[in-house]
């Protein structure tokens, strides 16, 4: 695959809609299930992932000509690990409470398939600016997915949004339970598929 011919805004939207990391590519499912009991968690991890994705994409785009093809995967891994360490220390210093709630997941960004995949399929073939927009789109797409699941779970489970009370009646405790993460993701994927089927039928 040669360098992309898409414009910057197309690249940006591609990550959020067409190739949404959670609902379309089905990558990085662990935080989507484990960390979406509240929208705040989704937002914070989304910010962290966006940061790591943008900075590692840019780094790889800058140094791509100097990487020997045989050691490219280890290079990606160490680049990602470096930026993860940076965001890990920043979050621990500035938002200690939320950092504790996210637990081990911030450090686990290093193993998220989505980031390595973007470096392998996009950043190592495109220039700095294009990689930046692609990384930003992917990161925000991830954040959007996380917040969408978080929205459903927090609203139905606790009746709150970002910690503010919204619903007045008693809610379903089930959605706060860890196991409901799987159900929510599965159901939302099914809804996405259903909408897609209907749209296809209409076009015909």
């Amino acid at each position: 695959m040669a360098a992309t011919t898409k414009s910057n805004s197309e690249l940006f939207l591609n990550g959020i809609l067409n190739e949404n990391p959670i609902f379309r590519l089905a990558l990085s499912m662990c935080p989507a299930v484990g960390l979406t009991t509240t929208m705040t968690n989704g937002l914070l991890l989304g910010i962290a992932v966006t940061f790591v994705q943008v900075f590692s994409s840019c780094t790889i785009a800058l140094i791509k000509d100097y990487i020997h093809p045989r050691i490219r995967i280890p290079t990606y891994t160490f680049t990602i690990a470096t930026w993860v360490t940076v965001i890990d220390m920043v979050l621990a210093a500035y938002v200690p409470g939320a950092y504790k709630a996210m637990g081990i997941f911030v450090k686990l960004i290093v193993a998220f398939a989505i980031i390595t995949m973007r470096l392998e399929t996009f950043a190592c073939k495109n220039n700095f600016v294009k990689s930046f927009w692609d990384g930003l789109g992917m990161g925000l797409g991830f954040m959007f997915g996380m917040m969408a699941i978080g929205f459903v779970r927090e609203l139905l489970g606790m009746g709150t949004l970002f910690g503010y009370k919204v619903l007045g009646f008693r809610t379903l405790l089930f959605f706060v339970l860890p196991a409901a993460g799987f159900f929510c993701v599965g159901l939302m994927m099914a809804i996405f598929n259903y909408v897609e089927f209907k749209l296809k039928q209409k076009r015909r």
């Binding site: 409901a180 799987f182 159900f183 159901l187 994927m189 099914a190």
Partner: peptide
Amino acid sequence: VPPSFRGLPIAFVTAGLFALAFM
């Protein structure tokens, strides 16, 4: 399986049932 659930969605729901059992 209903067509929109085929593949990953039904796998997720199954995993959810397992998670409930493991609780």
